[in-house]
Design a protein around this nucleic acid. Structure first.
Length: 296
DNA sequence: TGACAGGAAAATA
DNA sequence: TATTTTCCTGTC
């Protein structure tokens, strides 16, 4: 049993930041709501986060984390004023979309975990993806205790490599199962650490080489975990948005290329703003609830 | 309870 | 090279 650590509650001052939007805009899946708190496993720790106006409150369980690690994780180092200014200059009539999603940040997540998350996301709704990832973590991740609940870290590659086919069947992955089995045998955290040092095209090519990863998932991994803010994943919502706002339609590849061309180096932020905007306005599902509306 | 949501790969044109 | 078909699970 590892030694458990809990920090005192700390807080840091934030500007143009919405914790809720950032965590609920589809870039990350393993988030747990406890009242006003969000509990998020990260690295070898569990973070408890909450926000009041321009204060972000956090405590850490498991292993200690520096303030800098937390800021990087939540995209708090991004120059959001520069990004928003540049995006509204590049695309006409996009200010309303930016205004709507204001506070969203692109997170910097672990690429190994993010790759598995988006492999699981193929042809799946968010609640289904969450269920699979949480079950996988309970099966192979280390426990971290908090006051009222036990959480599980995302499993390491060495643990997943030892998992039996029978155990993996419990995830109900369907046609994704053979991609996952191949992935955990062939790849590990070190592969992604090395790949992260390369350029955009080389990263994208290596990701597309993984069975089960196409243009959309590759761009999700680049954007959410490989520090490539120009990546532009085109899912159904982005396709709807690009058609509605700019009359651009076509395959995922075509829409991704058009989005990167239109928005430039911060296209990923445009993508997240558009995703949030389209889902909030057009979704009939729970995403459009009171909670996610109009929060700072 | 059957329609529907959700991407990649293989097959086909 | 571009388009169509097939794959599977969970939800409402």
């Amino acid at each position: 049993m590892q030694e458990q650590y809990k920090s005192l509650q700390n807080s840091l001052t934030v500007k143009d930041f919405s914790l809720r939007k950032t965590l609920l805009c589809g870039q990350t899946f393993r988030i747990f709501e406890e009242g006003n708190d969000f509990v998020v496993p990260f690295k070898r720790s569990v973070l408890r986060l909450s926000q009041t106006d321009n204060k972000l409150h956090y405590s850490v369980y498991g292993e200690p984390l520096s303030e800098e690690e937390i800021k990087r994780f939540l995209g708090l180092n991004d120059d959001i004023e520069l990004i928003n200014r540049e995006l509204s200059e590049k695309a006409k009539n996009f200010s309303e979309v930016i205004q709507y999603g204001k506070g969203l940040r692109i997170m910097r997540q672990n690429p190994y975990e993010t790759t598995i998350s988006f492999l699981f996301s193929i042809q799946s709704s968010i609640p289904v993806i969450k269920k699979r990832l949480n079950l996988l973590s309970e099966m192979g991740g280390e426990k971290v205790e908090t006051e009222n609940k036990t959480y599980y870290l995302f499993p390491e590659s060495k643990v997943l490599k030892r998992m039996s086919k029978k155990e993996i069947k419990r995830l109900h992955l369907g046609f994704r199962e053979e991609w996952f089995l191949e992935f955990i045998q062939k790849y590990d955290e070190a592969f992604f650490r090395n790949l992260s040092k390369k350029g955009f095209k080389e990263k994208e090519k290596a990701l597309l080489n993984i069975k089960g990863i196409g243009i959309k998932v590759a761009n999700c991994i680049l954007l959410f975990s490989m520090n490539e803010p120009s990546a532009f994943p085109a899912d159904v919502w982005i396709k709807r948005g690009m058609e509605k706002l700019f009359n651009i339609k076509g395959s995922s590849k075509k829409v991704t290329e058009a989005g990167r061309e239109l928005f430039g180096r911060f296209a990923g932020y445009a993508q997240e703003y558009m995703y949030y905007y389209m889902r909030s306005i057009y979704s009939t599902k729970s995403f459009t609830n009171k909670k996610s509306r109009g929060i700072p």
